[in-house]
């Protein structure tokens, strides 16, 4: 697992810097005129229960492959210049970063739609699972809105 900003698809234990990731994507092209980001973070309340910790697990190789497919599809279908997707695994505290998607394009419109599509697609096709710890114990989340 890499922690450098070189790779546009990463699944890593370590936290990431949103600023560094945006700066890395700005270097992709001098034609970038719009950047949309989605940052998912650890939420305290879930279905009325207070969460004390989150824990993410992934299927190595397959998860990275799915994220790369999402990136390629977003570039092809929405006409954006590029996209990076970073997802953390392992224990995540409330308020910490979980997932970051950065879509860069010539204009804002395509980056908005590409970013929204990419996070929905990530949730649908990427083998990553979330376990929530509450006062009642640990539970694997089977559905996420």
């Amino acid at each position: 697992m890499s922690t450098t900003t070189d790779s546009k698809i990463r699944i890593q234990l370590e936290d990431f810097s949103v600023t560094d990731e945006i700066e890395a994507m700005k270097k992709v092209s001098r034609n970038i005129g719009g950047i949309t980001t989605f940052l998912g973070t650890g939420r305290e309340l879930s279905k009325g229960e207070n969460i004390t910790q989150l824990n993410f697990e992934h299927y190595p190789k397959m998860a990275e492959k799915k994220l790369e497919e999402i990136r390629q599809q977003a570039i092809k279908d929405y006409g954006i210049i590029d996209m990076s997707i970073i997802h953390r695994i392992g224990p995540i505290e409330i308020g910490e970063n979980i997932v970051l998607i950065v879509a860069v394009g010539e204009h804002r419109k395509e980056t908005f739609v590409a970013c929204e599509w990419a996070i929905a697609e990530l949730k649908r096709v990427t083998p990553i699972w979330k376990r929530e710890t509450t006062s009642k114990g640990e539970v694997w989340v089977q559905d996420t809105p």
Partner: peptide
Amino acid sequence: VAFLPPFSGGS
């Protein structure tokens, strides 16, 4: 072969 429960990545 892998058996996969419903995915819940994202946030």
